[in-house]
Amino acid sequence: MAIIVDRETRLLVQGLTGREGSFHATRNKAYGTNVVAGVTPGKGGEEVEGVPVFDTVEAAVAETGANTAMVFVPARFAADAIYEAVAAGIETVICITEGIPAHDMLRVYNHVRPRGVTLVGPNCPGVLSPGKSNVGIIPAEIFREGTVGLVSRSGTLTYQIGHELTQLGIGQSSIVGIGGDPVVGSSFVDVLERFEADPETELVVMVGEIGGAEEEKAAAFIEAEMSKPVVAYIAGFTAPPGKTMGHAGAIISGTAGTARAKKEALEAHGVRVGTNPTEVARLAAEVARAGTPG
């Protein structure tokens, strides 16, 4: 099973002929991901490492049966690429591109959401289901197959915690980098919901950081809706306070967005919070072992 990407994933890469796109798509393919097509307008008919390139997503889907799109096109064309993928019937869009204007993503999100399309990112490392499929830039060699779901706003911190877990002998079902932009396609709650429903996942490690109120929402969701244990880590206890953003932000979220506030919210809902990556891995190992029968 795993979530979002697995053996059923038929990947189409928007921006396959670009430097980053070809590099990472090739890595993904080498991992075993079923990379079926690339799309670069005007380059239809070419091939990249044996992957056929099409001019439009529609043609690529018709020809290859692609069901998942990975977006690697430059920021100013990325929103357009997502709209095209959705119009062509793609079910899952994973957007790696960073630097997309927030207003563009606001419109993309509100367009995509009611259509039932899963959008991960933008500005995220992608999704890896160890042993099955890797879509994005997550270095797969750090991780190994197992039953811990990992969801995070940050790339390298995810790798750090995954590495610590793997060193303790704890493998992962799926690793989801949701990205840290103001508007992301999938929130913590969206991903937690999927881990809860995934039979392979037995425990979830959630890696948050300062800003916004998504960790607080996740805390309430975990208590109300989740039967599986969740262990959390929050980065940024000593981070300098952000720029003055007026007062509107705090009023909306009803929280200061600080690491302390997030930790307290999580603990209030019964989620254990580690104070550094090593400790959170240790906590996860403890919970995982306690949950193993015998």
Binding site: S154, L157, Q160, G180, V207, E209, F237, A259, N276, P277
Partner: peptide, 27 residues
């Protein structure tokens, strides 16, 4: 680059890991 007030200069890769490093230095 962000200026802070202590004695340890920190270089890391990725915002999350850098923030985590600040926390660990403090701890």
């Amino acid at each position: 680059y962000v200026k802070l007030d202590g004695e340890v200069g920190i270089l890391g890769n990725g915002a999350g890991l850098v923030m985590s490093t600040l926390d660990v230095i403090d701890q």
